[in-house]
């Protein structure tokens, strides 16, 4: 088989497979989720666990120091408020 025929067939197969992929991709995006499963579609732990990005919020090993500092400060604030309300009661 001459070379140009082989290359043409290769490009043809590529185009056919790409078309199948794009059509199924777009159809998949457009079909709605079945009725009981809407809660799975929102970003959640179950979805992000399979991925490895440690900067993703739902990854098991997400570690942001500024956020942790904020949480601790807020916890201290709520404790202070609780102590103040207890003092006022006494």
């Amino acid at each position: 088989m001459p070379d140009w025929v082989r290359w043409l067939l290769a490009v043809g197969i590529l185009v056919v497979l790409l078309a199948i992929f794009i059509i199924s991709f777009v159809l998949y995006r457009k079909t709605p989720v079945p009725k009981g499963c809407e809660e799975f579609e929102k970003p959640s732990e179950a979805k992000c666990h399979g991925c490895n990005q440690t900067e993703c919020h739902f990854n098991l090993y997400y570690n942001d120091p500024v956020e942790k500092a904020k949480e601790e400060v807020q916890q201290e604030q709520t404790e202070e408020q609780r102590q103040e309300t207890q003092k006022e009661e006494n």
Binding site: L14, L17, I20, S24, Y28, G36, F40
Partner: peptide, 29 residues
């Protein structure tokens, strides 16, 4: 890679349309 990717989308399509039970089981992965 194109066949694998298309298979994934097609299987996902079938599961979304016809089998909510299977979608709950592994559809999101």
């Amino acid at each position: 890679i194109l066949v694998i990717a298309s298979l994934v989308q097609i299987v996902g399509l079938f599961i979304k349309k016809y089998s909510p039970a299977l979608y709950k089981a592994f559809g999101i992965y």
